[in-house]
């Protein structure tokens, strides 16, 4: 039966030839073959961005980037784990931005390289979540933070886009900044504020 989930697949991971059932992800295949793997393993559900891999498929010259927990093994695949890079190099605190009028100016102080984007699309092509990364950087550079942030709803902060950028832009942090200032300055829900006000006046105590 051709789609038997137990059928063994041969592939190469980090230079080691292994075989594992076809129903396995890259990480599961490693464990199945008896190789330890601790680093680069995280949530195992595609939301933490830890298990970044470079992949070349049989008969193709194209190298793609994916998440090892989500990637099913294929015959003849060649996979390399990418060690997680260093934390962000820029630094900012939201409370240092005095008002929403200042956000755009502050943004270019914190991320001066963002406007140097060469539009090489490297960031977009590495994104394992299919986000239009380059567009997000462009929008943020123009001060359109809410729109920029909206593009990055599914971003898992795997940092692949940062690795790909020749201008050393950290697009995922640009996007997260965009999302954070949007919340910090513009989310003011009246239902929450009412509730806080009522409780501040001593209302709504809990009787145990």
């Amino acid at each position: 039966m051709s789609n038997d989930p137990e059928k063994l697949i041969s592939l190469r991971i980090n230079g080691k030839d292994i075989s594992a059932p076809r129903s396995h992800s890259v990480i599961q295949a490693l464990w199945y073959a008896g190789y330890p793997r601790v680093k680069g393993v995280g949530c195992l559900q595609g939301v933490c961005g830890s298990c970044r891999v470079l992949v070349r498929r049989a008969g193709s010259n194209k190298v793609t980037t994916e998440l090892g927990c989500e990637l099913l093994i294929e015959e003849g695949m060649d996979v390399h784990f990418l060690i997680y890079p260093t934390p962000p190099h820029q630094s900012y605190r939201l409370e240092e931005i005095r008002s929403s009028w200042e956000v755009q100016a502050k943004f270019h102080e914190i991320f001066p390289e963002a406007e140097h984007c060469r539009h090489c699309a490297g960031c977009t092509s590495t994104c394992p979540k299919g986000i239009d990364v380059e567009r997000g950087v462009e929008l943020a550079s123009k001060g359109r933070f809410s729109e920029a942030g909206e593009l990055f709803v599914e971003c898992v902060m795997c940092n692949l886009c940062q690795t790909a950028c020749p201008e050393m832009i950290a697009p995922n942090h640009v996007a997260l900044f965009s999302r954070r200032v949007t919340a910090y300055f513009h989310i003011r829900p009246s239902n929450l504020i009412n509730r806080l006000e009522l409780m501040r006046k001593g209302g709504l105590k809990v009787i145990e």
Binding site: R179, R180, V181, T182, A183, Y184, I187
Partner: peptide, 15 residues
């Protein structure tokens, strides 16, 4: 929200 977390809002900006 002050750390920068977004929530789903309705048309009036309520949670």
């Amino acid at each position: 929200i002050q750390q920068g977390m977004q929530f789903e809002l309705d048309q009036y900006g309520d949670l």
